[in-house]
């Protein structure tokens, strides 16, 4: 079973993040860049399937040159190789264009499953896996907290819903997206980190993929950021120490807000 895992380099969600003043895209120069949080769960799920069924795990990312760090981090967990789509024209692409680029890159690869995180920690659109399903005409098995591959074709997930889950079935090829409820990602071993440096990374430009540069990037985006601002800080609240009446004081506050 051959699996492609989608990963994305994102600004660390534990630090302050912002958009760039000049072109209003995500600021990738401030702060720390890390692998998307849910991507690690996607990699873990792919590695578990490889251990059970054999095959190869390929990491695929679209991003600037420095996304190489994220590729090495991903490979250190255990995937076999990576594909890096990088082209200056990609900067500022919206989800629609990004999905077209990834779909074109997947067209160059052989896979039974594509696995991704359910959403990125920066854009949080949560629609990219569904859009790839739409573009590639493969089944969409998204929002999984559990993935089962039966034989070599039938794939079943438990898709998280507000009050439970749905059991969704499809045959491969399919695209799966996962939440952090699905597994516990492994830590890269020292050996894994050393090996990652030698694993093959293939780089594609847009022209390698047959994607025209004027269909992607900021100027071709189908939506536009008009303006942005920091969320105004909340006015200082009241903080009281509990002197035996903390609960009552809290309820008095709720009463002033007409909540109780």
């Amino acid at each position: 079973m051959n699996i492609v895992v989608l990963v994305k380099q994102v600004p660390d969600s534990g630090l302050e993040r912002n958009l760039r003043q000049d072109d209003k895209t995500v600021d990738r120069d401030a702060g720390n860049l890390v692998i998307g949080e849910l991507d690690e769960y996607a990699i873990e799920e792919a590695l578990k399937l490889k251990e059970a069924h054999g095959g190869e795990v390929t990491v695929l990312t679209v991003g600037p040159e420095k996304a190489t760090e994220t590729i090495r981090k991903a490979l250190s967990m255990g995937p076999d190789k990576a594909v890096h789509v990088s082209d200056p024209a990609i900067h500022g692409s919206d989800t629609v264009a990004t999905s077209a680029i990834i779909a074109a890159a997947l067209g160059k690869l052989e896979y039974d499953l594509v696995i991704a995180g359910a959403e990125s920690t920066d854009g949080q659109t949560g629609a990219l896996p569904a859009m790839l399903s739409e573009r590639l005409g493969i089944a969409q098995l998204t929002g999984a907290r559990k993935l089962t591959v039966d034989g070599d074709k039938l794939t079943t997930i438990e898709r998280q819903t507000d009050d439970g889950y749905e059991v969704i079935e499809a045959t491969t090829p399919a695209i799966v997206s996962v939440w952090d409820t699905i597994n516990e990602p492994r830590y890269p071993s020292f050996k894994g980190i050393m090996q990652a440096k030698k694993k093959p990374v293939e780089t594609y430009s847009l022209s390698d993929l047959g994607v025209s540069a004027d269909q992607v990037g900021l100027d071709s985006a189908w939506s536009e950021v008009l303006e942005f601002s920091g969320r105004p800080p909340k006015g200082a609240g009241v903080k009281v120490p509990d002197e035996g009446d903390g609960g009552s004081k809290l309820v008095e506050f709720l009463a002033t807000q007409k909540i109780v």
Partner: peptide, 18 residues
């Protein structure tokens, strides 16, 4: 920092009272 009203105390005392 976000709270409009905060109680610094033991939740096992504050919550039942509230």
């Amino acid at each position: 920092e976000l709270a409009d009203f905060g109680v610094v105390g033991d939740l096992f005392k504050v919550v039942p009272q509230a």
